[in-house]
Design a protein around this nucleic acid. Structure first.
Length: 199
DNA sequence: CCCGTGATTCTCT
DNA sequence: GAGAATCACGGGC
């Protein structure tokens, strides 16, 4: 890891997460400026994939900072996180949305008919715009074609509850840049009918 | 609001 | 091992 990026990401996840707003994630010719993220605090955090300890899927989170943790969900979507904190803590920041700032034509081809502001608006769309999938799980963020360039510290950061979790959704660990049109629309969790456990 | 879609993980044998 | 629930989502109506 480049010494600067490495030491930045090794800081506690609740410090790093808001500072990632305005940073630029590039994969090949497409680059996205981050406008919305969520913090996940490893084993301490009931909302984290790492909450129940290391598994085959989440093992990257338990490694050193500065790598990408990508997972596949709902049978069709990918989501990506930046691993941060010290090794073993399994802290990570979910990248929820951003603005495509380079490779716009390529990103449009990956989501035909979509307005530009929606190309990376939402965690699965962001992965699609950047063409991130399981092939990038564990990849370093300081080596082309995959790079993360921190920006200047954001002037104004909003925060609120995380989205779409069953557990620990009360923690206000979602951070976004106010007045950015690419921030994902808040969608209240739809409560699906639960089959009553037997008896 | 509903629902696709399939990997992952949990729970019970 | 098998069967079942869950799921850090997004598109369509």
């Amino acid at each position: 890891m480049g010494p600067e990026l490495g030491s930045f990401l090794e800081r506690p996840v609740l410090e790093v997460a808001p500072l990632l707003l305005g940073a630029t994630l590039r994969h090949g010719q497409v680059a996205v400026r981050l406008t919305e993220v969520e913090a996940y605090d490893g084993a301490n955090d009931p909302g984290s994939h790492a909450h129940r300890g290391p598994t085959a899927r989440n093992s990257v989170m338990f490694g050193p900072a500065g790598h990408l943790y990508v997972y596949f969900t709902y049978g069709m979507h990918h989501c990506c996180n930046v691993v941060c904190g010290s090794e073993g803590m399994a802290a990570a920041v979910l990248l929820r949305a951003g603005e495509v700032v380079d490779g716009l034509e390529t990103a449009r081809q990956r989501r035909p008919g979509s307005p530009d502001r929606d190309l990376a608006r939402g965690p699965a769309r962001l992965c699609r715009a950047l063409e991130l999938d399981l092939g990038q799980n564990g990849a370093r963020l300081d080596t082309p074609p995959l790079t993360l360039e921190p920006g200047p510290a954001p002037e104004d950061v909003a925060s609120g509850p995380r989205v779409g979790l069953r557990h620990a959704s009360d923690r206000a660990w979602r951070f976004w840049l106010p007045d950015e049109p690419t921030v994902s629309q808040y969608r209240p969790a739809v409560s699906r009918p639960r089959v009553r456990p037997g008896r």
